[in-house]
Amino acid sequence: MTNKEIIETIKYLNFCGLCTTGDCKNCARKIAKDKVLELLERDTAKQPIEHTKQVGFPFYECPVCGEKRCIC
């Protein structure tokens, strides 16, 4: 199972079992679920965004920080 699949599975889990909406903002289980999702998303590799048509040669942008690099 990939990190992406784990993230999608956790998003739809209801840890509490007491509520059906999963919108319990102060619930410790929801807070823990949100933290696990945050850490998994942070640690999952992201594909760089390729830009080629703007300047005539390929350069890439980091989807997290926005830094741009040319691979000329």
Rank of each mutant, 00 (worst) to 15 (best):
E41M: 08
P63V: 06
N14K: 14
K46R: 11
G66D: 06
C16M: 01
E38D: 15
T9Y: 10
C62D: 04
K11I: 03
T21V: 12
F15N: 02
G17D: 06
Q47M: 05
G56V: 03
E50D: 00
K30S: 12
D43V: 06
A28G: 12
F15R: 04
E38Y: 13
C27P: 05
F57N: 06
D43W: 14
Y12C: 07
C27T: 02
E8D: 05
V55D: 13
I71M: 05
E8T: 03
G22L: 07
V64C: 08
Y60S: 00
C24M: 02
R42C: 03
H51P: 00
C19W: 02
L18E: 11
N3T: 06
P63W: 13
I49F: 08
L37E: 03
V64S: 10
E67A: 14
T44A: 08
L39E: 15
L18S: 06
E61F: 00
T21D: 14
T44K: 02
E50K: 10
E5H: 02
K33E: 15
Y12V: 12
T20N: 08
E67L: 11
T20P: 00
E61V: 11
K35E: 15
T9K: 07
V55T: 13
V55P: 00
K35T: 10
C27E: 11
K30H: 15
L37H: 04
E67D: 06
L13H: 02
E67V: 07
Y12R: 13
I6T: 14
K33I: 09
E38M: 13
E61W: 01
V36P: 05
T9F: 12
T20V: 04
Y60D: 00
A32F: 13
D23Y: 15
N3S: 10
F57L: 09
M1I: 02
R69E: 12
E50H: 01
R69N: 04
R42S: 12
C27F: 03
T2I: 01
